[in-house]
Amino acid sequence: MTTPNPVKQPVNADSTVIFHVDIKLSDGSAAESTRVHNKPARIRIGDGSVSPAFEAQLLGKHAGDTLTFTLAPEDAYGQPNPDNIYYLDRSKFSSDSPAEVGMIIGFTMPDGSELPGLIREVAGQSVTVDFNHPLAGQTLTFQLEVLEVQ
């Protein structure tokens, strides 16, 4: 007796999708990958965690499918928002976490969560901290491997 092959469920508007993703910048260099620590991404279609353009690429795909697509900044991590750039007094930084250009420092928010900020500039007593996503403003190529559709 043969066991029938289960029908692979396609990604639809109610799906949870588990996938590996490799993100590349427009120059081809690697930006992020879930494969580094073997921790696949998980999203629920329609939950707002990714853009509608990203979700549209997944619709109709099945476990085992691979796909590559490129998104403009507006459809990926958005454009940098000038309102997410803050100027802090250098005294707010400790010797454990000095304000040095290029460092990413976690700042504790009023609700207790932590938000990473990139030190863009240190001038005298003023420190410029950018809270935009590091990939904001970038055209990105995504390579996905769909692992599971629920």
Rank of each mutant, 00 (worst) to 15 (best):
M1K: 09
T2A: 12
T3K: 13
K8H: 12
Q9R: 14
D14K: 13
T16C: 03
T16I: 12
T16K: 12
I18D: 07
I18G: 04
I18A: 05
H20V: 14
D22F: 01
I23D: 00
L25D: 05
S26W: 00
S29H: 09
A30E: 08
A30G: 02
R35Y: 02
R35E: 10
R35A: 11
R35K: 11
V36P: 00
V36S: 15
N38D: 15
N38C: 02
N38R: 14
K39C: 08
K39G: 01
P40K: 07
A41V: 02
A41I: 01
I43S: 07
R44K: 13
G46S: 08
G46Y: 08
D47L: 05
S49E: 06
V50M: 11
P52M: 05
P52W: 04
A53P: 08
A53W: 10
F54R: 03
A56K: 14
Q57A: 15
L58Q: 10
L58Y: 10
L59C: 12
L59T: 13
G60W: 09
K61E: 01
K61T: 14
H62A: 11
H62I: 04
H62W: 01
H62Y: 11
H62C: 06
G64S: 01
G64F: 09
G64V: 06
D65L: 06
T66K: 13
T68F: 02
F69R: 05
F69C: 03
L71H: 05
L71G: 11
A72W: 04
A72F: 05
A72P: 09
P73I: 13
P73A: 15
E74Q: 15
E74C: 03
E74W: 04
A76M: 11
G78D: 13
Q79E: 15
N81E: 13
N81Y: 01
N81H: 09
P82K: 03
D83M: 06
N84C: 05
N84T: 02
Y87A: 08
Y87L: 14
Y87P: 00
L88H: 03
D89E: 11
R90G: 02
R90K: 15
F93N: 07
S95F: 09
S95E: 14
S95L: 07
S97P: 00
E100S: 04
E100P: 00
V101M: 09
V101E: 08
V101L: 04
I104A: 02
I104Q: 09
I105E: 03
F107V: 07
M109S: 07
P110R: 05
P110V: 06
G112W: 01
G112N: 02
S113K: 11
E114N: 06
E114F: 01
L115K: 11
G117P: 04
G117C: 05
G117T: 05
L118V: 05
I119D: 08
R120N: 01
V122C: 06
V127C: 07
V127W: 07
T128C: 13
V129S: 06
D130L: 15
D130C: 13
F131M: 12
H133I: 09
H133L: 03
P134H: 12
G137I: 06
G137H: 10
G137S: 08
G137M: 08
Q138T: 06
T139S: 15
T141F: 03
Q143W: 00
L144G: 01
E145G: 01
E145V: 12
V146M: 11
E148S: 15
E148C: 00
V149P: 13
V149C: 03
Q150H: 12
